[in-house]
Design a protein around this nucleic acid. Structure first.
Length: 247
DNA sequence: AACGGAATCAACCGCTGCCAA
DNA sequence: ATTGGCAGCGGTTGATTCCGT
């Protein structure tokens, strides 16, 4: 097999995602889904490889992700599932709605492994000092909010269950678009113009820039499908010859 | 207040398996 | 049966944040 060139060699960006990139990705996937990760960044105007986009979406941006501290019950579940399944993090994540394999893997390595070893030694394991995501959960209240929001989410599926974003976007936006129409065959993508990265960035609102998380803005009281369409229109109208594709 | 070590977690790397040609 | 392209997975890394001194 021939390995695809790495992002760096292709002149693609690496490292932490900016809120602007997040918004571009969320907006694009909400509107068009992600049938083809490899084609997505180009179509959306992102200087990222498809792999990076997929990871960002599945581990961080999906609307059904449950953020905040793991509950004791979740931790116990991870431990027992790990006994059965081993390091099959995606399989474990499938049993824990709203949790990603990456997150579970991190928790295992940082908390649970230590706790287990200290339990075996007969100690009460050290209580995790903190768990704070970098841009979502500023404190415990935020954690609680995140949990509450997650609980309100109509249908949370695990990372592993998501092979197409259409489930998520459809349900969250209450649209009735069929899979065939929503999935990104190349023909579907043709309607979406290729946009230079700077175009999106220039079009961003300050409101969005002041939120902690892209979804905080998009999931705000007005954050619905119409909101998405509105922003897309704003973006499109900022350009000269760009048009919303027909879906 | 400043510093250094520890903890955390987002993101990357590289491999595997699946599928279509 | 073989090859190439892709998505997904698990391991690992490195930047950031926290906490104790």
């Amino acid at each position: 097999m021939v390995r695809a060139p790495c992002c760096e060699k292709m002149g693609l960006k690496k490292g932490p995602w900016t809120p602007q990139e997040d918004l571009v990705l969320i907006t694009y996937i909400s509107k068009f889904g992600h049938g083809n990760w490899r084609a997505l960044p180009k179509q959306a105007g992102l200087l990222r490889c498809g792999k990076s986009c997929r990871l960002r979406w599945t581990n961080y941006l999906r609307p059904d992700i449950k953020r905040g501290n793991f509950t004791r019950e979740e931790e116990e579940m991870i431990i027992s599932l790990h006994e059965m399944l081993g390091n099959r993090w995606s399989a474990i994540a499938a049993k824990l709605p709203g949790r990603t394999d990456n997150e579970i893997k991190n928790v295992w390595h940082t908390h649970l492994k230590k706790r287990l070893s200290s339990d075996k030694a007969g100690n009460q394991g050290p209580v995790p000092k903190r768990r704070k995501t970098r841009c979502c959960d500023a404190d415990a209240d935020a954690d609680a909010d995140a949990d509450a929001k997650a609980a309100e989410s109509p249908a949370r599926t695990s990372c592993s269950d998501i092979s197409s974003s259409s489930d998520v976007t459809r349900e969250s936006n209450e649209t009735e678009i069929k899979d065939e129409e929503y999935c990104l065959q190349d023909s579907c993508l043709e309607g979406f113009p290729e946009i230079h990265e700077s175009f999106w960035f220039d079009a961003l609102s300050t409101d969005y820039a002041n939120t902690d998380h892209p979804l905080d803005y998009l999931a705000a009281p007005n954050g619905n499908d119409e909101e998405m369409s509105y922003w897309l229109k704003v973006f499109m109208e900022a350009g000269d010859s760009l048009q919303l594709p027909e879906i």
